[in-house]
Design a protein around this nucleic acid. Sequence first.
DNA 1: GGGTCGTATTAGGCTCGTCTAAAGTATAAA
DNA 2: TTTATACTTTAGACGAGCCTAATACGACCC
Lengths: 240, 240
Amino acid sequence: MLSDVMEDYLKAIYTLQTEDGDPVATSAIAEYLDVTPPTVTSMVEKLEERELVEREKYKGVELTPEGETVALEVLRHHRLLEAYLNEHLDYAWSEVHDEADRLEHHISEEFERRVAEALGDPEVDPHGDPIPNADLAPIEDDDTTPLSDHGEGETVVVARVSDRDDEELRYLSEAGVAPGTRLEVVDVAPFGMVTVRIRGGEAAPDDRREQSLPESVAASIRVRSGDSETATPESGVGGA
Amino acid sequence: MLSDVMEDYLKAIYTLQTEDGDPVATSAIAEYLDVTPPTVTSMVEKLEERELVEREKYKGVELTPEGETVALEVLRHHRLLEAYLNEHLDYAWSEVHDEADRLEHHISEEFERRVAEALGDPEVDPHGDPIPNADLAPIEDDDTTPLSDHGEGETVVVARVSDRDDEELRYLSEAGVAPGTRLEVVDVAPFGMVTVRIRGGEAAPDDRREQSLPESVAASIRVRSGDSETATPESGVGGA
DNA sequence: GGGTCGTATTAGGCTCGTCTAAAGTATAAA
DNA sequence: TTTATACTTTAGACGAGCCTAATACGACCC
Ligand SMILES: [Mn+2]
Ligand SMILES: [Mn+2]
Ligand SMILES: [Mn+2]
Ligand SMILES: [Mn+2]
């Protein structure tokens, strides 16, 4: 059996690997998990012995297929829990992460099945992140791009927002930006500040306010082209 | 903060204290938690430093009021979870304990509140055990007695069954004995074996089968007098 | 090719929760 | 009252997961 700490390391490596490309640096993991680099080195050695990661000293670390499967397992738990808390226990979209982060290690496979069933096997969580399927097949790259990559005049639909920063999440929730929201980029200022016109979506139906977003926020919002109407995801988005 | 291991010790001491009377022996805790006595001694010393238990060497251990509050807190989580799993996630009455036992340490107060609300603030869990209220007020002694204390001809209503033994629980579930079931004691054999006629209840409405229960099982079933119709609890009981 | 600097690893230590083996205590039996 | 027996505590150890301080590595600059 794997400890929940090990599961957290594997999840972290998975996330960093898909965010920033392949070999993940010790210091990146340390920062992500809020531990010191020596702690990471020793944990990674244990994971290597169990053949969950591959590692080259002083270079970096990558998940093996088995390691990836574990990461996807934990991620499936996390995202199903987020969806369940949002839909069935009335949690706001922005409140869901911490609870799921604790529970993800402690639910049974039975619980996972029943939650998935209660939700009707959803494909995305409340932040728009894809939920690994029950077979834990690797997730394919999606067709989303960071909002910060888009220029003035473009219309896009929000696909995913980051789920890790509480403050940012509350800010977006407040601003009416959520998965499914249609945005028009009206201005890109120096330093990457992006101003968008909010064109509705489930969270803010008829609103047409403008909203300026700092670069860091715009970079963490992933969008799809908003020209074709078919690109909108079916994610459910909850209260304030 | 308290570790989940500490919470488990306090819960164990609480349970043993209410089952068997006041000072709880080291070996009783060891057996209950499946650890060795020296382990218990050292843990109990830590709990004493934190003023959660009082202790006299070689005698036994008792909860302080603060210790009891922690135990009630954990018990509230446990029993609310059991009720929720049973009512909202379709778990059978007999499947609920292990899941709750893991999750009880990891849910937030927010989660507790929302679960309690979803259930309408229930007073008992699916096994008939009382759920501590949100203020964690001590639970008063109830008016139940072990089925094994009753004689031939008496009619009783099942109030509570043990929640710790999976096998026993499945057996009772199979037999149609659940909180709310009305029973008539038809025979008490040597060695305490009790034969009852099942008079219905939610789990077995019109059934009138007879069922023999070993002493150990009869001792763990707590009942109320079945003469007055008013004694039946309102507990919800789920599928097999 | 030799320094320089940031990053990674090694070395050693700590707490928590557990264990086994040895020693101490209480109590019931003789 | 002494002794036998059951139970408890002490002593010492270990793995997990973390830390700080010291050392090693490697990439980049001159
Ligand atoms: Mn799973
Ligand atoms: Mn999420
Ligand atoms: Mn609570
Ligand atoms: Mn119960």
